[in-house]
Amino acid sequence: MNRFPDLLRYVKQLLLNNRWGGQTLISLYISLISGILLAIQYDAHSPYYSTATIELIAPFGRFWRALHYYSSQAFFLLLLGHIVVVLWKKEEMLPRASWIRLCASFPIAVLLLFTGYVLRGDATGEAAGLIAENICLSIPVVGTWLNDLLFDITESGVRKVYLHHLIGFVALGAFSLWPHLRRYPAFWRNHSVLVLAILAISVFLKTPMEPERFGLLHIAGPWFFLGLQELLRYLSTFVAGVIAPCIPVVLLFFLPQKTEKRQWAYIFLALWLIAYCILTWISYQRI
């Protein structure tokens, strides 16, 4: 009779006790190592050509590319899990400045993942990059400057995007995470199953890549970008591309200390997430 609630309780305990943080970090380490290896072959002058070369011609290129792709995906998903569980457990909050510094790693992680898609240089990556450039340009006053600094794809190709994927965002992320990593180190020996799983996935699964071709009537962005892509149909670029994605980040940065107020922030975060999932689903239907 009581099996189902027991099972639920068991799953909840399993989720709460999982070492999300450590797993996130180990996936990030694998992503960094495989990323450095890929950079040896990658050429930002001809992004699509060099991605195709890595995928099709370079010995073991397909494996290293898959390892970089799947470890990065694992990193992002585990990071989401880590954040949710930390909020769920209502662990003691850091002082505001330290909290913001730590939480800044989340938008940086999104940017790292996103620039990775752009660097593929295929139809999806190219469109994603151009959309990001136009979203940046829609920001009043500082938009042009921000675009010159971060994307500038129309003028510079993927040169600047590559620079930030390789150094800029990595350095910012390291800065934001440094105090956290010193406090909670992760050990490889505790995560051998995860490492083996990522290795196995990289051997057996194909990494997505889409060539430009005639009859390409619909381009779907990266999976985490689909909701935004849908929203950009209805609202102005600035509202859909900047304000909407900034809402959860700002909520996270300024999460109230008091439990009662914090509940409201959680409700808003959950509502935002549900809305984003619905938009993603609508966008997915168009594929």
Partner: peptide, 25 residues
Amino acid sequence: RTCTHLGCRVNYLEDKEYIECPCHQ
């Protein structure tokens, strides 16, 4: 071929005789 909405590369659809953007149509 640069869409004036968000810069994606547009295509000419010969059968429909119009140009369409693959990102937001």
